[in-house]
Computed example of a mutant assay.
Amino acid sequence: MVEKVPMTQGGYTKLQEELRWRQQSERPRIIEAISEARAHGDLSENAEYHAAKEAQSHNEGRIGELEDYTSRAEIIDVSKMSGDTVKFGATVSLVDEDTDEEKTYQIVGDQEADVKQGRISISSPISRALIGKSVGDSIEVVAPGGSKAYEILAVKWG
């Protein structure tokens, strides 16, 4: 059975755009670089050729990954979700119980996570601690930097 990969519509769109770019722009550019480097003669000592072949390998590997993720994508429409309980797609506001620092995160699929933009992976320790909880609940997260306690301030959708 094929395991579905949960993601938001925005995350799915970004993966599709990267896939299209890699196939339609990056692949032809790399092929051109390989053919140019071949024209320089002896391939055994041709650094440009080896760099282009390495770039081609990396690009084709990423294309394979992107095709896999998009084919197994289970797009979850966050705008149609509601409720007081934290689940995939929720935007959760937390307060660190030790420092009173507030943070807001949206729980998203593994491929679209970006902590700097406030999007955390569904499989991260903090997400796993949040799932099923509600406003006012406290959670404890055991992270590489030690244990942290948070209180849930708000759960928003869309």
Rank of each mutant, 00 (worst) to 15 (best):
L66P: 02
E151K: 02
A154H: 00
E65I: 08
P6N: 10
E36Q: 14
D84F: 10
R22T: 02
W21N: 04
K4D: 11
W157T: 04
R38Y: 04
M1D: 12
I34V: 08
V108L: 13
A47T: 00
G10I: 13
A154L: 00
I30L: 15
D110L: 10
S25F: 04
G158Y: 07
Y12F: 13
S93A: 15
G64K: 06
A113E: 13
G118D: 15
A129E: 04
V135W: 14
D68A: 11
G41Y: 07
I126P: 06
T99M: 11
R72E: 08
R119Y: 14
D68M: 12
S93N: 12
D114Y: 09
E32G: 03
V78N: 02
K116S: 15
G61M: 01
L66M: 08
V78I: 13
A129S: 11
E45L: 15
D137W: 11
S57W: 01
G11C: 07
E74V: 12
P144D: 05
S71M: 09
W157L: 00
Y49C: 13
I120H: 08
G158C: 02
K148Q: 08
P6F: 06
G10M: 15
Y69K: 07
L130E: 08
A129G: 01
V108C: 12
I139V: 10
L153C: 00
A52P: 09
R128L: 15
I34C: 13
A129C: 11
E112A: 13
E48V: 00
L94P: 10
R29H: 15
H58Q: 10
G109S: 06
E74K: 14
E101N: 12
W21C: 00
Y105V: 00
I75S: 01
S147D: 06
V155Q: 00
R22G: 09
I152S: 04
E74Y: 12
S79W: 09
H50T: 12
K156M: 00
T91W: 05
T91P: 10
D98H: 12
D98E: 15
G136F: 05
V2D: 13
G41H: 03
Q24Y: 04
T104Q: 11
G158T: 11
R27N: 15
D98L: 15
R119K: 13
A55M: 09
T104N: 06
I31C: 03
D42V: 11
A149S: 02
E74C: 13
V135C: 13
G11F: 07
D42Q: 06
I76D: 03
I34E: 03
L130H: 06
S93R: 15
R72P: 13
H50C: 01
S57R: 05
E67G: 08
A154G: 04
A129F: 02
A52F: 04
H40V: 06
A143C: 09
S93P: 14
Q9C: 12
G61P: 05
P6R: 01
K103A: 02
G64P: 09
G89A: 14
L130C: 02
G83R: 11
T8R: 10
E48W: 00
Q23M: 06
E140R: 04
D68F: 12
K80Y: 10
A143Q: 08
A154R: 03
Q117C: 05
K156H: 00
L19F: 15
G61R: 02
I31F: 14
L43M: 03
A143F: 13
Q56R: 06
I120M: 15
S79T: 08
G89N: 09
L66N: 02
L15I: 03
S79L: 02
E102A: 10
S82K: 05
I30F: 15
P125Q: 09
R20W: 09
H40Q: 07
